[in-house]
C-alpha cells in the first residue's frame, strides 16, 4: 500500500500503538498484561474506564490535529488553529447554556448528551456566521474569515462569562471544568460520533495532498493549474469544522493541539501536504493519549484537566514558534 511507504507514517503508527498501550496499562492502578487473566478486578478497569477513555483521547487528538492541519493549509497561515474559526467559542457558549441550566447534573453519564449536543450546535452556528461574514462574492476572503473568527470568539467568550455570572455554584463549577477540556467523563457512548466520522474524513481527504500543495500558490495561480479552489475551500472548512465541533462537544476545549501537531510535522517531514492529513491524525492521537496519561498520573489519584496540560505545554511552544518566525522573516528581509 502506498500509505505504508509514506514518510513517517510507519514511525507515527508505531508511536501511536505504544501510546495507546501505555494509556491502557498505566494509571493510578497499573495493569500488567500477563496478569489480566488472573485478576478479576483488572477487567472492569480496562473495559469500562481505560479503553473508552483511550479511544476518546485518540479520536479527539486525531480530529483536532487533522482539523488544524487542514485549516493551516486552507487559510495559508501556519498560526491557524481550529479555535480561530469560532468553533471553540460557539461550542463553549452552547455547552455553558445547558450547564448553567441544569447545574450539577453532570454526575449522570447521559447528562453529557445534551451538553455535547448544545456544544456541537453552538460550534456549527458560530462557524456558519464566521464564514458568512468572511465571504466575498462566491469566494472566501481569508483575512476576513480570520477577523470574523476573532470577533465571534470574543462575543461567545462574553456570552460564556455572562452565563457563568448568572449560574449557581454548581453550574459555575461544571462550566469551568468543561472549559478546560477533559476526557475524564469518557464512557462507551462518547467516542462513537468521531469513531464514525474520522475514518470517513480520512477516506474523503486521502487524495487531497497535491491539491493542498497547489492551493498554497494562491487562489488565482492554483486555479491556473486546474484546481477547483472554491470547492476545496468549502469541503475542507466543512470537514475541519465538523471534526472540531465533534471533538469539542465530547471533550470540551483542548487547545493548542491543532496548532502544535501540524507545525511539528512541517519541521520533521517538510512542507509538502502529500501525507500531512494521516500524519496529523496519527500524531494528534499519540500526543493527546500521552497528555491524558500525564494528566492522570501527575497528581494521582486526583487528575488535571487535560486541556489545561496541553495549554501549559502549548503556550510556550506557540511563543517559541512566534519568535522563530519573527527572526526568520527578519533574516529573509520580508
Amino acid at each position: 500500500m502506498a500509505l505504508a511507504r509514506a514518510p513517517g507514517l510507519k514511525a507515527l503508527s508505531l508511536a501511536f500503538l505504544l501510546a495507546f498501550g501505555a494509556a491502557l496499562l498505566l494509571g493510578p492502578v497499573p495493569l500488567r498484561p500477563w496478569a489480566l487473566a488472573e485478576d478479576p478486578a483488572a477487567w472492569p478497569i480496562l473495559w469500562e474506564l481505560r479503553l473508552p477513555r483511550a479511544l476518546l483521547a485518540a479520536l479527539v487528538g486525531a480530529a483536532l490535529a487533522l482539523a488544524g492541519a487542514l485549516l493551516q493549509a486552507l487559510l495559508r497561515n501556519p498560526l491557524a488553529d481550529p479555535a480561530l474559526l469560532g468553533v471553540s467559542g460557539g461550542a463553549a457558549l452552547g455547552a455553558a447554556a445547558v450547564l448553567s441550566l441544569g447545574a450539577g447534573t453532570l454526575a449522570s453519564a447521559f447528562a453529557v448528551v445534551p451538553v455535547a449536543g448544545a456544544a456541537f450546535l453552538g460550534a456549527l452556528l458560530a462557524v456558519a456566521m464566521v464564514l458568512r461574514l468572511g465571504q466575498r462574492g462566491t469566494q472566501l476572503d481569508l483575512s476576513g474569515v480570520l477577523l470574523a473568527g476573532v470577533a465571534i470568539n470574543t462575543l461567545c467568550g462574553a456570552g460564556v462569562g455572562l452565563l457563568m455570572m448568572l449560574a449557581g455554584d454548581g453550574g459555575l463549577r461544571s462550566i469551568t471544568f468543561w472549559l478546560f477540556g477533559s476526557l475524564a467523563n469518557a464512557h462507551w457512548l462518547s467516542p462513537l460520533p468521531l469513531l464514525i466520522t474520522l475514518p470517513l474524513t480520512l477516506l474523503l481527504t486521502r487524495s487531497w495532498g497535491q491539491a493542498l500543495d497547489q492551493y498554497q500558490l494562491g487562489d488565482r495561480e492554483a486555479a491556473h493549474h486546474g484546481l477547483a479552489v472554491g470547492r476545496l475551500q468549502r469541503e475542507g472548512l466543512l470537514v475541519a469544522t465538523l471534526l472540531t465541533a465533534l471533538a469539542v462537544a465530547v471533550a470540551g476545549i483542548i487547545g493548542f493541539l491543532g496548532l502544535m501537531v501540524p507545525q511539528g510535522l512541517v519541521r520533521w517531514f517538510g512542507p509538502s501536504h502529500r501525507h500531512r492529513l494521516p500524519q496529523a491524525a496519527l500524531a494528534g492521537a499519540t500526543l493527546l493519549l500521552l497528555a491524558d496519561l500525564l494528566a492522570r498520573l501527575l497528581l494521582a489519584p486526583a487528575e488535571l484537566p487535560v486541556g489545561m496540560l496541553t495549554a501549559l505545554l502549548g503556550g510556550p511552544f506557540f511563543l517559541w514558534l512566534l519568535r522563530r518566525q519573527l527572526s526568520h522573516s527578519l533574516a529573509d528581509g520580508a
Binding site: 500558490l217 494562491g218 495561480e221 493549474h225
Partner: peptide
Amino acid sequence: YLPQRNALAHPFSAAQVVALAG
C-alpha cells in the same frame, strides 16, 4: 500563465514549487 505577481508564501523548496505543475 505566469501572472505579474506571485502569491506563494509556503516554505516549499524551489523544486517542489515547479512540481506543483503536476
